[in-house]
Design a protein around this nucleic acid. Structure first.
Lengths: 127, 127
DNA sequence: AGGAAAGATGACGTGAACGTAAACGTAACG
DNA sequence: CGTTACGTTTACGTTCACGTCATCTTTCCT
């Protein structure tokens, strides 16, 4: 996959992909001097963009990415990755819980607003 | 509440609070020239920090904040706020769903890692 | 061969969200 | 009455995550 195809598939700019490579979040292979993105790169980019939406920094994401290819690691590295994963999992679950709470509160506020609107409508109908 | 108390209560710096005021996210009243933060400011700051954790920009948060005091608004403003709230609610629910998916995937990866670790342990015990 | 299109590198620019330092006010303490 | 502590404004500095040229190859088309 060329850089352009990659950009269209994920709605990012070439600059972004080169930037991610410079930051070692992506490692496209080269054909001559051109970048070629494979299946693995697409999987990683998907995770990167997801991580961003959750508010993780690129550096945090870079570490997280290693968790998704713990394949050929030594036990020491595997343990480190696993521990990091536990931390991040806890963070994500906490964030989900807080998000649910925020959603509930926002719904409350909206219900209140809806009542106010209905009330205003009744008054204008009466007036 | 003084700025210092506020900082300790929410673990932010004075600079941050002044910055939020400059951006019109907070409106502490003044005693002479000193800032005094009330209950309302604490509620707002809580929402600000929450919003940040969910990846919203300060400008987005500023708009969201108005949703939480739709009290004395006119119908037109109330409708606008309500519509904005619906948009944000949808975003937050989408984010929650994606977060749940991400959590599930990460758990899968960790289960896989756990199996690898167990396997390595068996091998070293055998060796 | 000539020229547009796509991709690469390098360098500088930018907006968001603060950090940090300078210079000043003031209120309490010894 | 000095100084210590906390607060203020103003202004410039910094980090992150890219955007935006400028310049240079490589490739593809006619």
């Amino acid at each position: 996959m060329t850089i352009r195809e990659m950009c269209e598939a994920f709605d990012v700019t070439p600059r972004t992909l080169r930037f991610y490579e410079a930051k070692e979040l992506l490692h496209p292979r080269r054909e001559g001097q051109r970048r070629l993105f494979g299946k693995r790169d697409r999987a990683r980019l998907k995770l990167i963009l997801r991580g961003k939406r959750f508010g993780f920094s690129l550096e945090e994401i870079r570490q997280l990415l290693d968790l998704y290819h713990m394949d050929d690691s030594q036990e020491t590295q595997l343990r480190k990755s696993y521990a990091l994963a536990e931390t991040h999992l806890a963070e994500m679950e906490a964030q989900r819980d807080e998000l649910n709470e925020a959603i509930a509160e926002l719904k409350d506020q909206m219900a209140w607003g809806a009542r106010r609107l209905a009330e205003l409508r009744r008054n204008s109908a009466a007036g």
